[in-house]
Design a protein around this nucleic acid. Structure first.
Lengths: 403, 403
DNA sequence: GCACTTTGTTCGGTGGCCGAACAAAGTCTG
DNA sequence: CAGACTTTGTTCGGCCACCGAACAAAGTGC
């Protein structure tokens, strides 16, 4: 149950809680210095926080030339969060603590688009499985984050917009999740949540302005500006799958020609690999019907066919990444999605493609690299989104003991 | 002289001052409702503000069913601001009051790049001319805003970065302006400041997320996100002149091929018009050596050659605008710079070019239109930048009477 | 061993903001 | 047109977040 009356929602309380989370263990005096408040004020705020069980005293720290400080530590296990990644062809769930550690993880292939009802049932079932595996006090579940491969309404994040999942429009599914598990449900776009994961646990820790590029079934970007996800006027910012990169290219489902999505994406890469099979008789993929995983694996072992496919994709991506750099000048560009497994084999040709299309200034300033969060990135980001909300608004924390 | 001790710099004081500016004349009770503070609190804050001379009581307003309110009005003439537009081939200055009204305006052609020293002298000379024409109390000058056709350092805005004006690097020129006129000097990129002008006085009033595209000697974008100029990691966000739109296009000064700048920009449009002269013997431009102004004028009278030039430019711009829409999904795109004079003759083909390259969603949400601020837009934006700083920090106001 | 630091708490005080109460100056209704 | 009701703006007492000074406890360093 959510107790709205226990933790006062001051700005300062919020700031202190976030600081304790960041530093893990920190003394009152240090908090006072960091927040530029007096020690007496911080003492009182910390006193209130101690009463909530979110932080606890954790022994003495190093002396700085005087009395040793009492360290105050964030209680990472004060709550758990469920993160759901709804892909085009799979569903995966992660259960994390408040430090982003995996407590449970489940993944299933599922035709989400053609069977949205089944997807809904699968999510609740896998959610139960994760909670059972964790075997902790279920009342510590704080919230559920859901990543969907579609834009969301920037006005009321949580509303799914896209036609990709018509059955999910509005939020009936999310309401069901809410009533089944009895906790708040947050929804956002998968690329946006991938960016969140990178900022908290991955390559973008400490970076407030960057672009996350997810290359998987489709291509999407999560744009982080000033530490916040940027959604644009109607929530479709970052939907770069349909940027036109070749006016003479193949026709796209969207009606235009030469969209990025017609060149890069699981389906396209697989098609391309199969078309190249004849030309590469020595490839490990020769004589097989390769899927995307096989292609990525082959690339990692430097198979020439797979490298060709990856390099071509990098070249196409480079056009768009160059545009992003010229326009937004982000501090870094992080590549996620399954194709990111290829690492340098993807990034090197990408950097080259970008270099020929950008000013020296902006290209030099941006480092382009791959994520190392792996397959759990999106689900982790969904869980992290809930964590962010909770740290900003401690009322969301359950099981907070009365003062 | 700046009095730092007169206006206390509370958040609330700032909020109230901005509100009075926005509403022009507003009662204490109305301020209390808008800011959700008590009337007693607002009364005290307004009392302090009255003492500064920035606001003044201005008679009675309409009754809302009870006692008639006393209106408090912003004093638009409490200060004046000088805005400087340093172009590639001209320098212009505007003197405005705190409502953006033009008090004086001067423009001179000058080869800024080849004669930066002369430019500096010209700015101070024209500044004196503007102040003399205004003929007001010179101590009311609050600050000087300068627009430069080059990126600025996002860390310390005011530092000019680019190689376009090597002599202006660092801030010697700005220091000189400061010492000559004895007021703070603010510097920013011209496209950024054009966006500021649009947001305060032009097509983007009330819009917090939009992109301003300046098409003049060069092409640049000012990106407004959440009401703030977005500069990117190294200050080159919006420098879209070197977005590659045609891999097989002509070589650019920057070393790459097919940059937008090789197709759109004063120089390129003039060259293109001259190349087309033979093909359009009936054009009003036939037999002349047209400059950009003549081409724009001809387009406005529907001359086929000029329309051809404008349409081609629109087509090229469309590629980049489509990219911007797909990536950022801004609420609107506003076209400025001299080419914006062409209005519908530019916007219509641009909209068409964009429509074939964007998702229906994002294109439909963005309206693309031309600025109507004219040639003074950039200088006005520079002045407005100072106004914004002053409203955010009333200490900057000069001549504030002690309480 | 003694002077000096740092930590964390206590306690009285300050300042921003609030609500209640009130006088002044309106509108509306019978 | 008088009386009831509304709205405005001010005054005044009070609350609360936060502060600084003072202090005890617990260190360090010469």
């Amino acid at each position: 149950m959510i107790r709205a009356d226990v933790v006062s929602n001051d700005d300062l309380t919020r700031t202190v809680l976030n600081l304790v989370w960041e530093r893990r263990e920190v003394s009152r005096a240090e908090i006072a210095r960091s927040t530029k408040r007096s020690r007496s004020t911080i003492s009182e705020v910390v006193g209130r926080l101690l009463g909530t069980g979110l932080v606890a005293e954790a022994g003495a720290g190093e002396s700085r030339g005087g009395r040793r400080p009492i360290l105050v530590g964030f209680q990472d296990d004060a709550g758990v969060i469920l993160g759901v990644d709804v892909g085009a062809t799979h569903i995966s769930l992660i259960l994390t603590d408040l430090r982003g550690r995996t407590l449970a993880w489940r993944e299933r292939a599922h035709p989400v688009r053609s069977d949205p009802k089944g997807a809904e049932a699968l999510i609740t079932a896998l959610g139960e499985v994760c909670l059972a595996e964790w075997n902790g006090d279920r009342s510590r579940l704080m919230g559920i984050g859901v990543a969907v491969p579609s834009p969301v309404d920037p006005g009321s994040p949580g509303r799914v917009l896209d036609r990709v999942l018509p059955a999910w429009r509005g939020h009936s599914v999310l309401d069901r999740l809410n009533s089944v598990f009895g906790v708040p449900v947050f929804v956002d776009n998968d690329a946006n949540l991938g960016a969140v994961a990178e900022r908290w646990w991955g390559e973008a820790v400490g970076i407030d302005d960057f672009v996350y590029l997810k290359v998987a079934t489709g291509v999407g970007a999560g744009i982080m500006i000033g530490g916040e996800i940027y959604r644009g006027a109607t929530g479709v910012a970052g939907e770069i799958g349909h940027v036109a990169i070749d006016p003479g290219g193949p026709e796209c489902l969207c009606g235009n020609r030469g969209c990025l999505a017609t060149f890069v994406g699981t389906r396209q890469l697989v098609d391309r690999a199969r078309a190249l099979l004849e030309r590469f008789p020595d490839s490990v993929l020769a004589g097989t019907e390769p899927d995307i995983r096989a292609i990525e694996d082959a690339a990692l072992s430097d198979d020439p066919l797979a490298l060709q496919v990856v390099t071509e994709a990098a070249d196409r991506l480079g056009i768009v990444v160059a545009g992003v750099l010229n326009l937004l000048n982000p501090g870094s560009v992080i590549l996620g999605g399954s194709l990111a497994r290829a690492e340098d084999r993807l990034v090197k040709p990408l950097r080259e493609a970008v270099a020929t299309r950008t000013l020296v200034d902006s290209a030099a300033a941006s480092d382009i690299r791959t994520s190392d969060l792996g397959a759990r990135a999106t689900a982790l980001g969904a869980a992290t989104h809930v964590l962010v909300a909770a740290l900003a608004n401690p009322r969301l924390f359950p099981g907070v003991k009365p003062t």
